[in-house]
Design a protein around this nucleic acid. Structure first.
Lengths: 338, 338
DNA sequence: ATGAAAGCGCTAACAT
DNA sequence: ATGTTAGCGCTTTCAT
């Protein structure tokens, strides 16, 4: 038996290919009686139109791509991504899109993957994260007219993105530390390729500046969002005697707590620690972490909705969405003002 | 300017479409001088053949699908999958295939995803894990002639799979415990949907049986590969006074250690503990875990190679690959025979 | 409302 | 070695 094609269905129903095609695509111009007949034959035969040909003609695959430009190792060990991906997966499935996660074993494989992503039109739109501004992939996506949304802000006004208020969150955290009487507030910065890191650092600086506090470069240490980097940064901070540490992620804050524990420095009595994210491990930390909560899963949900919105509209002005953060006070901070 | 097509390239070069097509597909029958000219024009224009049309004609997308029928939550918190996926990603990239991971937010979304996977011919072959025998997806893959390999053995002789010697590994672990004088050897079983769990349990039983030891159902406890399940299973085992516990995964063994620590039972003096996997957290455990090492990453590597082999051969008898395990002795077991 | 026919961009069988 | 032609399965004008 030959493959079941639109043509066969047409033959069996006694109509033309065009009519069958119209039925499949929900075109209005089909007499309902004819539509019924066609649908019945389709059901009986178990016909499915060839997805590749449909893709060729309709430019719709019902697949969304997700690219996180990090090694799988880095992605899978970062609870932020876990939650983000969950949000993205959830909403994709709700809207009947498959999600396809492109994975890199090592970051340097980017060079091979990106051209493939740009060429392969096997997904309808792409979600991507943490890409440096003016990264070639971004330019390629724009040049090839591939619909995409970024997670993380971007200067380019043509680009739709969704981000959280990193600046405001960091500002709030730092201000709280100032208000509660801390004098030497240090910060551990995240991966600098990430705009979120830059924003959190800027929020920290703004808060200090607005209150007339000096910005001491010795109290600013680089990290890369890993626990280990928080640990090491803290060790390097200790000689400068900070009385508070604002870490740009909970995971790094956990590293800070470990370093302080080893140095026999009590938290929050001697040093207050604030994190960022409020992922589940923040509340399980010892002491439970004061942190800035960002809506990670909602970010993923909204990224998909935004992308689908772009896909469904012929005309789509770029959208820039910034989600708010919340300050969550737990046990790792105390007041020095009494 | 219109879209760059094969036809345009032909025109610009002064040859026919067929010739250009032959150049692109590395057909032998092209005079090398002509080939050069065509390639030059292609390079100059930046032409890329339409991937969708190529897919339609060649049935090759250079994309491999990966489906792990678990929630993203379960996948991302299981170090086994992390390593497996790394292996798969690595080899895919080496062979210039993109890897596309299909994700489920909740397991019940399977019903929606599977039909899409079966229809969408957007990948050349699929790798899948831990699927119960005669799962509808398996039947669908067979019925639709979609090339796939399973990670984990399967009865059906048409199916190619790659697995590790779970039976032998469990047998070795249990035999070692017997040889070192343990009398009441308990086991914590993994997720029963998984053939690996069944095999490890069977290996345990075989070892006991072969040495004339009784099989005591009280010493066999179900788990689901999570740390928590190992913890709970151990608590339920304690009343039956085991002197050794063989856990079907390191993660569950870690849970066992935690339960024993809380119960003030010393390992390995009072109870010996053996895990399975030898993922990095095994050696970092306290005490370091005696375990059965399985080559997780190699499993992923080989799964891809096997799949690519199937894709490249017109005739491909199903292959069944079983990788060996190794017994790794560390500090969580001791001898009772002195 | 329906059908005929052209077209999508490519491959491959068939000529020469 | 190269060109001509048909064909893939569908959508979409353009007729009627």
């Amino acid at each position: 038996m030959g493959k079941l094609t639109l043509e066969k269905i047409a033959e069996l129903t006694g109509v033309s290919r065009s009519t069958v095609s119209r039925v499949i695509n929900d075109h209005p111009n089909v007499k309902s009686e004819v539509r019924e007949r066609v649908l019945k034959v389709i059901a009986q035969t178990g016909y499915h139109s060839d997805p590749i040909t449909r893709l060729q003609n309709n430019h719709r695959s019902n697949v969304l791509g997700l690219l996180i430009p990090q090694s799988t190792q880095a992605i899978f060990t970062d609870p932020y991504y876990l939650h983000l991906i969950q949000g993205i997966t959830q909403t994709s499935n709700i809207f009947d899109y498959s999600l396809s996660l492109f994975l890199l074993h090592e970051e340097k494989e980017e060079d091979k993957l990106y051209p493939r992503i740009l060429q392969n039109q096997l997904f309808d739109g792409l979600i991507t994260t943490a890409i440096p501004a003016n990264h070639p992939l971004i330019l390629g996506l724009l040049a090839n007219n591939i619909p995409f949304v970024l997670i993380g802000r971007h200067e380019n006004p043509q680009i739709s993105f969704i981000d959280v208020d990193n600046l405001g969150g960091a500002y709030t955290a730092t201000t709280h530390l100032i208000r509660t009487g801390h004098q030497r507030i240090a910060t551990i910065v995240g991966n600098i390729k990430n705009t979120a890191s830059a924003d959190r650092l800027q929020g920290y600086k703004n808060a200090l500046g607005d209150r007339g506090y000096p910005i001491d470069e010795n109290l600013i240490r680089p990290g890369d969002f890993t626990e280990q980097s928080g640990y090491e940064a803290t060790q390097k901070l200790l000689p400068y005697q900070p009385d508070a540490i604002f870490a740009a992620s909970d995971t790094m804050a956990l590293g800070a707590l470990r370093a302080l524990r080893e140095a026999k420095i009590t938290v929050p009595n001697e040093i207050s620690v604030v994190g960022f994210d409020d992922l589940p491990h923040a509340v399980n930390a010892n002491p439970a972490l004061t942190t800035i909560r960002q809506p990670v899963k909602a970010t993923g949900n909204l990224a998909v909705e935004l992308l689908l919105d772009i896909l469904s509209n012929e005309y789509h002005p770029p959208q820039r969405i910034i989600l708010p953060t919340e300050f969550v006070m737990r046990a790792s901070t105390s007041s020095k003002t009494k």
